[in-house]
């Protein structure tokens, strides 16, 4: 087999645009999913019983069904109920809901990991509940969940390729398009793979740097 990457250079702009869309999709879904995660984790720990049940149901359904089917339901089924979303928006919503379910569990575990005695120490100093959360709970909880949360972020980034199935023009979809024009399957997917790999490694490096910057206190070994 002879490798020929030269034909791919013509699609340089398309690849860059696809990469950008993948990043955008990841950031939107991670941002919205994190908001769902924080709200869900707070409610699942202290909300009214029906709300807790509803959130538990949401988590179980989302985590135990294929993300692709969830995306198809939003893109193909919702229009029959009167809600029609363009491909990119549908993918963003589906991935946000998907990421949110995992984020709730991760954040809940982080909050649960803070010893009750820490909260009591804060209360006994006359701090408000918000001050206790903001200054005593938040950072240690974040440190606890950081590895799981960043791993989930990476899985989300890789999972954005599902959006190609509803024709959202992210990186994998762009790859399919270029392959159909050049018939250089190996070269196309090798380059797409390399871009995903570079993106993941860049995020991992950034996360590691951020970790060193934020979580500076020594940990008991």
């Amino acid at each position: 087999m002879t490798l020929n990457f030269s034909q791919l250079w013509r699609y340089e702009d398309l690849l860059a645009q696809g990469t950008l869309m993948t990043l955008l999709l990841t950031v939107i879904a991670a941002g919205a999913g994190t908001l769902i995660g924080v709200g869900g984790a707070v409610l699942v720990r202290g909300g009214p019983r029906p709300v807790r049940w509803a959130i538990r149901g949401y988590i179980e359904v989302i985590r135990n069904t294929p993300a692709l089917i969830q995306l198809f339901i939003i893109f193909f089924v919702l229009p029959s109920l009167g809600l029609r979303l363009p491909p990119f928006e549908a993918a963003a919503v589906a991935l946000s809901i998907y990421f949110g379910a995992y984020a709730i569990e991760i954040i809940r575990a982080g909050l649960d990991a803070i010893p009750r005695a820490q909260l009591e120490a804060g209360q006994c100093l006359g701090l408000t509940r918000w001050q206790v959360f903001r200054h005593i709970v938040l950072l240690p909880a974040l440190r606890t969940i950081y590895p799981a949360f960043t791993s989930q972020f990476v899985l989300l980034l890789l999972g954005t390729s599902l959006a190609s199935q509803v024709s959202a023009e992210e990186l994998f979809h762009v790859g399919g398009f270029i392959e159909s024009r050049t018939f250089r399957s190996f070269e196309v997917y090798a380059v797409i793979c390399a871009i995903y790999f570079a993106l993941v490694m860049a995020f991992k490096l950034a996360f590691a740097g951020l970790e060193r910057l934020i979580f500076r206190w020594p940990m008991r070994r």
Partner: peptide, 26 residues
């Protein structure tokens, strides 16, 4: 509670804050 201090058996210092911040936070 600001007038009544309590010291616990397990210290309950905040591990992510320096000694200074532990003391000055409240």
């Amino acid at each position: 509670r600001q007038r009544v201090g309590i010291v616990f058996q397990a210290f309950n210092l905040f591990p992510h804050l320096t000694v200074e911040r532990n003391i000055t936070l409240a």
